[in-house]
């Protein structure tokens, strides 16, 4: 689509804002930041697939936020008289499950749980990975050896099995599932962060700040983190699909969200019993997981183009 017909180029006020944002000579710290963000947004916007992914995720956020307004029914209300209704039934677009609960309403409320899991894991795992990886890479020596061997130990376990063990030890439930997934998800981030730190550590700009007497703490947090974070964001977004699937897997095995919670994985697990005669009960939440995972992957690909300092400029 051509840019010339979009309203913001015709409106003179919007045009001057655009010029202000695109300037090569920012006049204040805030101006420089906003300008850099706008440049990033422009190159992100040029990627159609990434915009589709972003669109799906914004829609998901919207659905989760306004779930009580959007859901046609109470997700927990059982009606054994109208159980296992097929798709496109009047009043139950996606049918009902084995207890006669409206699947669409459960999906809508389930989006809250999915986002909750995603947000928590996305906060914990990369942070732990970043901390371990950058410290290990920058300090080196025995610290590096110890931290990387611990990382190896975590990496050596199959992910779902390790998560299962944690949940079994901590008890079933959604918070524990999140902790278990985070604990199994951080080692790859630590590896990535360490590898990047090793290249950054020997660069001239790190030598230059050392010559100003900066200590290790400042160098790691202010100089190395900003460069590692962008590639971690990309990786987290790409891994997000796997995290959702792991959470759904735990739910499916009965170790994540507990019934009657409308978590998507748990919904599939319940629908499994009727899969031959009433396929939609398991398929609809499966499609929801698929769509959201795909959206995160598309977004991650787009973010890589914008954030990866090696590709840009």
């Amino acid at each position: 689509m051509s840019d010339t017909h979009s309203p913001d180029t015709q409106n003179p006020e919007a045009q001057s804002l655009r010029a202000w944002l695109l300037t090569e000579t920012p006049t204040s710290r805030r101006h420089a930041k906003l300008s850099a963000l706008y440049h990033g947004w422009l190159s992100f916007r040029a990627n159609t697939m990434a915009m589709i992914g972003l669109g799906i995720l914004v829609a998901l956020l919207f659905v989760a936020l306004f779930a009580p307004l959007l859901a046609p029914h109470d997700p927990f209300e059982q009606n054994l008289g109208s159980r296992l209704l097929p798709l496109w039934t009047e009043g139950h677009v996606f049918g009902t499950d084995s207890l006669g609960r409206d699947i669409l309403s459960r999906l809508i409320y389930g989006s809250r749980i999915t986002l909750y899991i995603v947000a928590l894991v996305a906060l914990i795992a990369p942070l732990v990975g970043l901390l371990v990886g950058t410290v290990s890479g920058y300090v080196g020596g025995w610290v590096d050896t110890v931290l990387m061997r611990i990382t190896d130990i975590f990496l050596a376990f199959p992910r779902l099995v390790l998560a299962l063990a944690f949940v079994a030890a901590l008890g079933a439930g959604i918070e524990n599932a999140v902790i278990a997934i985070s604990l199994t998800a951080w080692p790859p981030y630590a590896r990535v962060a360490r590898a990047e730190t090793l290249t950054i550590r020997s660069s001239d700009y790190i030598s230059a700040i050392k010559l100003q007497g900066a200590g290790a703490f400042r160098i790691i947090t202010k100089h190395i983190w900003p460069l590692c974070i962008s590639s971690l964001i990309v990786r987290v977004t790409l891994d997000m699909a796997g995290i959702i699937l792991a959470a759904a897997g735990l739910g499916f095995l009965g170790l994540g969200a507990q019934p009657p919670s409308p978590e998507w994985g748990a919904m599939i697990s319940e629908g499994r019993r009727f899969i031959l005669d009433h396929w939609w009960v398991a398929t609809v939440p499966g499609l929801a997981i698929f769509t959201v995972s795909l959206a995160f992957n598309l977004l991650g690909d787009g973010l890589r183009d914008v954030l990866d300092p090696k590709a840009g400029d």
Binding site: R29, A32, D204, Y205, A208, I209, H223, P309
Partner: peptide, 30 residues
């Protein structure tokens, strides 16, 4: 007392720091 100017100006400035940040941080450190 001693400061250094590096060979490659493309490698000696942090790619995510503005000129203001580079100089401001140096001054603050001293």
């Amino acid at each position: 007392t001693v400061q250094m100017v590096f060979q490659d100006p493309y490698a000696s400035l942090h790619p995510r720091h503005s000129v203001d940040q580079v100089l401001g941080e140096t001054l603050a450190l001293h």
